[in-house]
Nucleic acid binder design. Structure first.
Lengths: 342, 342
DNA sequence: CGCCGCTTTCGAAGCGCTTCGACGATGCGC
DNA sequence: GCGCATCGTCGAAGCGCTTCGAAAGCGGCG
């Protein structure tokens, strides 16, 4: 409730001196500055948010656009929203949450009213309506995820292709010969998130390059049983599984393999790749290359702050290299063809 | 980018006339008003957020305090944060997300800088540090959840006691004689959320009143197997289960009962009560009395808006009556003692 | 000694909006 | 026909802050 005028009066200086003492934008004699700071903290002075915004042409607020579809993975979304908020605070920004139908209108509104200094767009679809909108807004915007047309945008995403390739390489290097990919449900893929497709493509290409048999399946429901059955039909000697799917499907995998007498990693090695859940607490923990909300949001916020404060709005795509976390779910296989070498 | 001065000039009226035409706070001649509105929408005029805040002493922003613990149920939290945001928009408020360690400091800051007009406190613990803080803030605050000491607070919560009693009554009325409650993990309860305790107490009391055998168990991990075993030890003729637990435990229940030859509802009836997940897509959908984020947040926002706009800050506790959703997981039992009546 | 340049501080002009008081114009009753 | 109430509009005073330009004070140098 104390205003800058109260502080100025109590410290016996002018309002502008207080302002400069607190912001450090001009040099103030050290003892004056100390006195001002002491008085300010004594009075519990905090600058009035809207007055500061109005005068400084900066709100220190970042809008977070977070759409919610029926098939939304709430836990994953939560993680991204939370991390965005946390990282924003580290840069001294607050976050305004824009959800649902309001995601578009909210972006427009918070940009036009200059409520937000910048926008973070989460859960980007291949063909996302927020892409053309962002181009018209004249408000720094960072996309977390990769739309089809990235012309003029700043985007951050996990390098899903690298993650898929690395998973294949790990398995092939360890002697696996028949590798299955359990992907996302078809409806999810059709709805537009593009990373499942990127994983699909990179997985298949890498398997071809490395010359191993491979197959892909999409779960129907919330468990992996149909997927396992279909994989085994195509790959009778299935010895490696790459997971790029939801938590419920992944967590059901061990038990379902067990019903067929298959044990992880004794009979089948498993690697999760580009997934947003942690596999550490599964009955059998899987090796994983997580889609790490913290890493993505940190990178996104760095770019956004650079755009806001530094005026650097050059379009760019930042692909975050995947990290491999070993939980022991991959073991070396004896060579499939046991003819002695050379 | 257009300012109110641009609109005024284009419409040939003064700034204050534009302001009144748009806000409706004074009467303006209909055709003047129409002209102003036309010009405003043509110019795409939207009032500058901070200028409006500063002049009107109102930010139209509500802070949402959402702590995140290690054992947080992300999906449930997401639902509450999203619903709060959605409902706030219906009242023309935006929401600022305060998470984690910043939950306390953020409340203080957004109140002191008058960034927020009001605060919604989510996931309230029995002994929540945000309670004493709220009492000092002089910023309208609504708690979603019930702390131990509600003195002077405005709180909204599901009537968990009524939900527990109603679940017991349903089962007893349908002839069940041995009812088990699967509660939350002990660590969750000890951490401080109080609704599990309220359910425990009301469940036990109601069972006593109705004169049925009952038992309570807390899961250890993420499935219900230990809980089912312990319930059956105490209640060999277990014929009804009340669930007030997490989604993973609940979703594992049918399969675990099946391993003991028990089928829902043929052998055991099940009612979920005060849970934040939906049971509709379970293999066997359970009857449920959901902890409905939408209902809680709507009620909370109504109270908050009343406090902000109407100045009505009278402390009160609003308990939301539970709704029973029938999925057919409860069937009538033959009377345990089959002596023919009268 | 006077001038210059530096440091430190101050005054005042906004930022774009809301809102209060006032003023001219119009309509009514007596 | 005059006074009075009412309606519609306007001007100006803020809201609390940032920031620019300038003033004041001071030491050093020619």
């Amino acid at each position: 409730m104390a205003t800058i005028a109260d502080v100025a009066q109590a410290a016996g200086v002018s309002i502008s001196t207080v302002s400069y003492a607190l912001s450090g934008k001009r040099s103030i004699k050290p003892d004056t500055r100390a006195r001002v700071l002491a008085v300010a903290s004594e009075l519990g002075y905090l600058p009035h948010a809207s007055a500061r915004m109005l005068a400084a042409h900066r709100s220190h607020i970042i809008a977070v656009s977070e759409p919610v579809h029926p098939d939304t993975d709430d836990a994953a979304h939560m993680a991204f929203a939370m991390q965005t908020t946390r990282v924003a605070r580290e840069h001294n920004y607050d976050t305004l949450l824009l959800v649902h139908d309001d995601a578009l209108e909210g972006m427009r509104r918070s940009a036009a009213t200059q409520l937000a200094d910048g926008i973070v767009v989460l859960d980007v679809d291949e063909d996302d309506a927020r892409v053309p909108l962002a181009r018209t807004l004249d408000c720094p915007t960072v996309f977390v995820g990769l739309p089809a047309d990235t012309e003029g945008l700043v985007c951050v995403d996990l390098n899903f292709e690298a993650a898929a390739r690395q998973a294949v390489d790990r398995l092939v290097d360890a002697g696996h010969r028949q590798i299955g990919l359990i992907s996302h449900r078809l409806e999810t893929i059709e709805r537009g998130s593009n990373f499942p497709r990127r994983v699909l493509r990179a997985f298949a290409e890498r398997c071809e390059e490395r010359g191993v048999r491979h197959a892909v399946t999409h779960p129907n429901g919330h468990t992996a049983d149909g997927s396992v059955r279909r994989l085994l039909e195509q790959l009778p000697e299935l010895d490696g599984i790459v997971l790029n799917t939801t938590a419920d499907v992944a967590s059901s995998l061990s038990a379902i393999l067990a019903t067929r007498g298959l044990e992880v990693p004794r009979d089948v090695s498993v690697i999760a790749t580009g997934v947003s859940f942690t596999t550490a607490r599964f009955a059998v923990p899987f090796d994983t290359m997580p889609l790490d909300a913290r890493a993505s949001c940190t990178a996104a916020m760095d770019l956004l702050v650079k755009a806001i404060d530094g005026g650097d709005r050059t379009p760019r795509i930042v692909l975050i290299p995947p990290t491999y976390i070993d939980h022991g779910s991959v073991i070396a296989r004896a060579a499939a063809d046991p003819t002695p070498g050379v």
